[in-house]
């Protein structure tokens, strides 16, 4: 419990650091939001007025702290471009992206862990060759390509969803979910292949260990050894890997959302960067960082639940 509290504190510090760096990045990168908003024809007086209106005339540190206090009181600021509160703008997009990532993550877990264990049985057989080849193929094919393929097969031919026309999540939940499911499949295929390969090599390593011999000597059959003993012992590195995966699929979702026409965070982030819409970019960057850090924290806590030996470090 103490350890969990420590992790959460660390999480907060990381996020503050990330937000500071994101703020700093825009300070260094050339470009003036006022200029972007008003165009090149704007008079210097007008530019100055807009800068004042946006608060850009204040020193960097002051602006950062006012943003930070706003963030903790739930106020992410107002978009330069849309003149709307940032949270109102990004909330539906956060929702879409999180759904896609969530579905994709669930797919990765429920497919790759059993298959990883099961594929242990394929060692030293002709199957092994096909398995490896298929695995490599899945890893090598980029999600945007499978995205196009799936859109064509399931969208245009089989009409499971309408490519390019994403239904509103709140009005047509089932329809939106169907749409997002295929995006999530694209996103998860390479990751599933990687996780299976990793799980399999971990299982092979664990099978060499002495406790497996003990388990056999007690009368366990192959399934008893694999599921009763080896599975749990193989999970720790896999959970760590899944934590990283959870962080990476949100990056991968940018491309896939584009292919499937899902209005998500990625697309909005790219647009806001080119518009120099700092408050929006800042908010999205912090949300992404939050996701990544949370993924790592959750993976650590899950690992501690699995392996009691990892709990020792926390009590110190």
């Amino acid at each position: 419990m103490k350890y969990a509290a420590k992790r959460i504190l660390l999480l907060l510090i990381t996020m503050i650091l990330v937000s500071f760096l994101a703020f700093l990045a825009f300070e260094i990168v050339a470009g003036d939001p006022a200029q972007t908003m008003l165009g090149t024809e704007a008079t210097p007086e007008r530019l100055e007025a807009v800068r004042q209106e946006l608060g850009l005339d204040r020193p960097f540190i002051v602006r950062y702290f006012s943003w930070l206090t706003g963030f903790f009181s739930g106020n992410l600021g107002v978009s330069y471009n849309y003149k709307q509160p940032v949270w109102q703008l990004i909330a539906p997009k956060v929702e879409n992206t999180l759904w896609v990532c969530f579905i994709s993550f669930i797919l990765i877990c429920i497919i790759s862990i059993p298959l990883g264990i099961w594929s242990y049985n394929w060692t030293n057989k002709i199957w092994d060759f096909f398995r490896t080849a298929f695995n490599q193929l899945c890893m090598a094919v980029p999600p945007f390509f499978t995205g196009i393929l799936l859109s064509w097969v399931f969208g245009i031919v089989l009409k499971f969803f309408m490519p390019g026309r994403f239904p509103d999540l709140h009005k047509d939940f089932a329809g939106a979910l169907r749409h997002m499911f295929f995006a999530a499949v694209c996103l998860s295929i390479p990751r599933i292949a990687m996780t299976i390969r990793m799980m399999r090599s971990t299982v092979i390593g664990e099978m060499e260990k002495a406790y497996v011999r003990t388990a056999i000597s007690r009368g366990n059959d192959r399934k008893g050894v694999l599921v009763g003993h080896v599975l749990k012992n193989s999970l720790v590195p896999v959970v760590t890997f899944l934590g990283q995966t959870m962080a990476e699929i949100i990056g991968g979702s940018i491309v896939v959302e584009q292919v499937f026409g899902i209005p998500g965070l990625g697309r909005f982030l790219v647009a806001s960067i080119s518009n120099r819409d700092y408050p929006v970019v800042q908010a999205i960057v912090v949300i992404l960082a939050f996701w990544v850090v949370i993924a790592g924290t959750v993976a650590d806590l899950v690992n501690q639940a699995i392996d009691p030996r990892l709990r020792l470090g926390g009590s110190k």
Partner: peptide, 18 residues
Amino acid sequence: HGNEIGVVFQEPMSSMDP
């Protein structure tokens, strides 16, 4: 296995499922 013949190994630490 385990029912009629029991086995105790050399290294207790590594022989137990951690």
